[in-house]
Write a protein that binds this DNA or RNA. Structure first.
Length: 213
DNA sequence: CGTTCGATACTCT
DNA sequence: GAGTATCGAACGA
């Protein structure tokens, strides 16, 4: 039988651990986005760990800036960044305050409010694609810069919360190289996903782009 | 389902 | 100025 997902929020202590512990433990958890039209719930199926100052792939690698400021704050908060001129991606800050580690939320399954996400994800060829990729996930949940720095551990009517859900069994969690990270030729296998889940995004190696002349 | 190509504007050098 | 923690359109199978 399938256990009923636990709808209690994850605590700040959950996120106040090494990011490589937190990242796989987030799989199967439930992200709830409160919108004026109603809640959207997503079961996390794919994440990536970014290990603060020790990780050349991390936005925090070269120190604190206006963009990555939230990463240096308390755990359990939302870090949103803008990339490729068009897209937002969302992370959850981990580790003790000041460590600047975070988990990128890469993909998930919409389990509630799918009708609300379809209006923003018109290009999705099926519901499996609604949140298949980090920018698609953010678009589906209507996440943008306005949510940067918000607390995902607060209860009540916070715009974003993370609930306990049903953690993926450890033997169902696979890991491999991170997607699209410059210079990370499999050195850091810090992408984690649920085995055989149809909502996991395809792996893409990093491709440097040059501007047209 | 897969591949290829290029749009886009922000961040840091 | 250069690079980017990506995606969608178009096309083929």
């Amino acid at each position: 039988m399938i256990a009923t997902p636990d709808r209690t929020p994850l605590t700040r202590e959950f996120f106040d651990r090494p990011v490589l512990e937190v990242a796989p433990d987030l799989l199967g958890r439930i992200l709830v986005r409160s919108t004026p039209d109603g809640p959207i719930a997503l079961r996390l199926t794919e994440v990536e760990a970014y290990d603060g100052p020790n990780d050349p792939g991390s936005h925090a690698y070269r120190g604190r800036t206006a963009r990555n400021d939230v990463m240096f704050g308390p755990p359990g908060h939302v870090y949103v960044y803008f990339t490729y001129g068009m897209w937002f991606c969302m992370n959850l800050v981990c580790g003790p305050k000041g460590e600047s580690s975070a988990v990128l939320l890469r993909a998930g399954e919409i389990i509630e409010g799918a009708e609300l996400t379809r209006k923003r994800r018109l290009s999705a060829r099926s519901d499996k694609e609604l949140a298949k990729g980090p920018a698609r996930l953010a678009t589906a949940l209507d996440v943008d810069r306005a949510l940067n720095g918000t607390d995902a551990c607060s209860d009540g009517d916070a715009p974003l919360r993370v609930l306990a859900g049903t953690a993926a069994a450890p033997d169902q969690v696979l890991n491999g190289p991170r997607t699209g990270v410059a210079g990370d030729g499999g050195v850091h296998p810090w992408r984690f996903w649920i085995a055989n889940d149809p909502t996991v995004s395809p792996y893409r190696a990093h491709v440097p782009r040059r501007r047209r002349s």
